[in-house]
């Protein structure tokens, strides 16, 4: 029983990571740093709450969240693909903008500076932590499928081959007539849509939007991408590993001699370890972050 509870909590915690890093892998493999994931998620979370609140349907909320993430990804694409801005600067700006805009509209739409009113979500048993309760949430299934689908697209479809080529050697792709900018646009928009679903999961699972509710999850997703060496199956496992560490920390709260902050560090420490080459060298896509050329 203990174990099943641990497992189901891990899965719930892993969901936003799985969505965000599935989108992030797609974007990064095309050469665009997934630094805006946090922003896409936050925007997705807010739009999902807004959509669900006004439509009373979590499905509309999910669609709105997906759209919210896509809009921010489009902004990122506009600055970095169209105008060739520095991706790190643009990514940071996107995240700051998402915080400000969601806070503004939170006050504007709901008259609160901290959280939205309660909105309809998917879960049937609200506080249930059993696996059965999870299985009734369609978003759990979507989250579980997001990474395999992205992996399939990357390795088994012409579009995926083009994404990988564009992220490694855009000059080569261009020389065979591949529209590099268009491939990147598509990759970044899809990445925003998928990450936006991750944000929607957060809001719908908690039945509300709270200010800055993503709380760094986009960055943990980015860490999972690096730890998983940009390879979807490994990235998926990294998400589960990070989520398990977090669950562990929550379960131990109060009972542990280890301060929670140390457990919260785990994803970042693992990422640094991965980057330092301890578990095989982490080689990013060669053209990552170099869309200004």
């Amino acid at each position: 029983m203990m174990f099943l509870a641990f497992l189901s909590q891990t899965i719930r915690i892993a969901m936003p990571y799985l969505f965000a890093s599935a989108g992030g892998v797609l974007s990064e493999r095309s050469g665009l740093i997934g630094l805006g994931l946090e922003g896409y998620m936050l925007s997705g979370a807010f739009c999902a709450a807004l959509g669900s609140y006004y439509s009373h349907s979590p499905w509309i909320g999910l669609a709105a969240g997906l759209a919210g993430g896509t809009v921010f990804a489009a902004l990122y694409g506009l600055c970095s693909v169209r105008y060739k801005g520095d991706q790190v600067v643009v990514g940071v700006a996107i995240n700051l903008l998402a915080v400000g805009i969601t806070r503004f509209f939170l006050r504007f739409a709901f008259g609160s500076s901290s959280n939205s009113p309660r909105v309809p979500g998917f879960s049937v048993a609200e506080t249930g932590s059993g696996l059965l309760a999870l299985a009734h949430d369609p978003m759990i299934w979507m989250g579980a499928l997001a990474m395999p689908v992205v992996g399939w697209v990357l390795y088994r479809t012409p579009f995926g081959l083009r994404v990988r080529a564009v992220g490694e050697h855009p000059g080569a792709a261009l020389s065979v007539g591949i529209p590099v900018a268009r491939v990147r646009w598509l990759a970044v928009l899809l990445s925003g849509a998928i990450a936006g679903m991750g944000g929607a999961y957060l809001a719908l699972d908690q039945h509300q939007f709270t200010d800055q509710m993503t709380a760094g999850r986009g960055f943990i997703a980015l860490a999972a991408i690096i730890f998983g060496r940009w390879d979807p199956p490994r990235v998926g496992l990294a998400c589960l590993l990070f989520a398990a560490a977090e669950t562990f920390q929550i379960r131990l709260q109060g009972a542990s001699a280890v301060p929670a902050q140390f457990v919260e560090m785990i994803p970042y420490v693992l990422t640094i370890v991965a980057l330092a080459g301890v578990v095989g060298r982490a080689v990013p896509p060669a053209a990552l972050g170099k869309t200004d050329e």
Partner: peptide
Amino acid sequence: FMLVPTLTVAENVVLGREITAAGRL
């Protein structure tokens, strides 16, 4: 050379003119 080092010879050759079967590579 305009080759993508992480792809195979065949993938590099067909890149942009991929051979597909039911939408898949």
